[in-house]
Every structure is written in C-alpha cells, then in structure tokens.
Write a protein that binds this DNA or RNA. Sequence first.
DNA 1: GTCTATAGAGTGATAGAC
DNA 2: GTCTATCACTCTATAGAC
Lengths: 188, 188
Amino acid sequence: MKPTKDHLVEAAAELLWERGYAATSPAMIQKRSRAGQGSMYHHFSGKADLAATAIRHSAGQLRRATETALGGGTTALERLGAFLDMERTPLAGCRVGRLVQDPDVTADDQLRAPIAEFFTWLHQRIADVLVQGVRAGELRADTDAAAMASLVVAAVEGGYVLARAEQDETAFRRATEAAKSVLAGIEV
Amino acid sequence: MKPTKDHLVEAAAELLWERGYAATSPAMIQKRSRAGQGSMYHHFSGKADLAATAIRHSAGQLRRATETALGGGTTALERLGAFLDMERTPLAGCRVGRLVQDPDVTADDQLRAPIAEFFTWLHQRIADVLVQGVRAGELRADTDAAAMASLVVAAVEGGYVLARAEQDETAFRRATEAAKSVLAGIEV
DNA sequence: GTCTATAGAGTGATAGAC
DNA sequence: GTCTATCACTCTATAGAC
C-alpha cells in the first residue's frame, strides 16, 4: 500500500497533464487521490509545493523512459528513431511540455526550473547521440548536431500541438515520421 | 473610437494568448477592456461566446499575416523562409497553438473548430507551396510535401514550447533555422 | 497523520434600474 | 447599451479537534 503522499503526487501529476496548473485545484487533486484536505496540507505547504513535486515526478519519469529509448540500438539513427517512436499518447499532449504555456508556471521558478532542466537535458542528450553518429562515421561530418537536435525535439512537441488541434494522432505521426526521413537523409 | 464590443474581443484575445481559456475570467476581460459586466453580457451570451469570437479574431489575424509571408518572394524556398522568419514573439507562445492544451477548449467545438481549421489551412497552404516548388523544378521531385509541411509547422509550434520552457528566444530560432536548413537540402 | 469547519476572495451569471 | 446589486458556487488556505 502506497503512502498517501505518493497518491497525492500522482493525482497531481495526472491533473497537471490533463488540465495544466492554473485550472487544477487542490480539491480536484484531493478527490482523485482520495486524500482529505488535511492530508494534503500536512504533506505539502500548498498547491505550488505539491505541483512542483508532481512536475519533478513527471519530468523524471519521462527522462527515464527517454534514456531507455536512446540507450538501445546500435547506431545513432536507430537510437533517434527509437526516441521518435517512443510510446506516446499524442492526443493527451506532452506531460512536461504542456505546462510551459501556463503563466503561473513560467512565473514561478520552483515550477519552471524542472521543466527547463528537462528540455535542456533532452536537447543535449539528442545532440550527443548525433555527435556520436558523426564520430562513428554513420552521419555526415557537416551535421549541425545542435540544430538537428532542436528540430527533432520541436517535431515531437509541435506534433503534440498539431494532434490536439486536429484531434487526430495522424498529425503527430506525420511530424515524427518527417523528422525520421530528414535524419535518414544525413546518413553517410 | 472603436465600439466596446471590439475592445472586449481584443482584450479577450490578449488574455487567451497570455493565460489560456480556463485561467481567464470575464472580470479580467472587463477590466482590461474597461467595459462593465453589463456590456459584456449584452454583447455576448457568456465567457464561451466571447472566447469563441476572440479565437476566430486571433486565428484570422494570424492567417492574414501568414498569407502575406507566404505570398511574397519568387521561389518556394523564399516563401517558406519568409514564413519561418515571420515576426513572432517566441516567449509569448503561439496565440492559436497555445489554446489547444486547455481541456475546456478541446471539449467545446465552438472553441476548438476555429483552431483546427487554422492548422488544417496552414498545413495545406505550406504543402501547396512545396508542390509548386517541385513543379517549378526548384525542389526535388521526390519531395513528400505533406510530411515536409508537417515538419515545418511542428518546428514553429515546437519552437514556441522550447523557447517558453527555457525562457530563451534562441531555442525558437534554433528550431526554425534548422527547418530552413532542411528545406535548403531539398533544393535541386 | 487525518478530519471537519470556516474564512475571504474570486467565479460565471442574472436581475432590474437607468 | 451600460450600470450596480446580488446570487450560488468554487478557490486556496488556515484552525483546531481527534
């Protein structure tokens, strides 16, 4: 049996993913986690504190899943393909990326820092794989790793936006498939 | 002197851009537009009605600006470059794309439809420019216009997400510059 | 560690005067 | 067409009993 604190964090993470920060109330989190008001304010100083913990929780989950995808395969292209093909739910949006639109999140360093860290890490990690691919002679020597890494991450995050706008997963897949084609084009 | 109704729509559009739908209250819109509660409920049936009008207003503005960018230039590459280099405020996010994360927006067809229409139009319009480029012999004949259009739009929308996450415009520019490089790579 | 009661502010909307 | 008053409800948080 998990501690109430964990239930609160998981319920908060789910609701932040679904509704964002401003539109998620402590009462909703309590209801979903079956925790009372007293429990929540015992474990956390308030909404922002619980949300900060939930964001770090979500970012950590996504980072570990990403690391697994990028850590498999033998070639750089296989690893990046695995990242682009990670199991995702495009219509739900990105559990981390979706939070950056919320002005209450970007205004609070406690909430924004773990998100910024995640994307800085992700960009660097993908650029690293590209550099390794160049060194291994798999990718063209004139590959701009930083630029290509930006495009790959933007394809995923932008793909989420398009999928939600059209309410169609296909829009997400088109963007990630296009990114894969472009990557295939820099193969030696 | 503009009618109060227009002030309400413009204030609502600004606030939707800054805060999203759920986190924007009628009171905020009234305050910014200097319109009273009575005025708002005289011109609109409620928050959703005003927001729907404001979303159509923003989508129309962005569509016209995009049409101008895509309509200039002589080659397909110049037009797409102009689109990627349109005057934007990356840290503010996309006035249309940012709304799709809001579950209250995606749940209400009145609110989601103009957003979906905008992105469907944008994707088609960019794919058209690519097809024209192929026909004119400027771009490679094996260009997948639909895939490339998805990547271009995703680069912009994803670029916004990255810029807001890192609170740095550079993240946006890296994504759009990368998209331009990829486009340059399909030139004949 | 969890409960209920309560607080002051804000929510979205309606009523009726002017 | 705009104003103020009011409504029932929800928001985030605190207090104090158990």
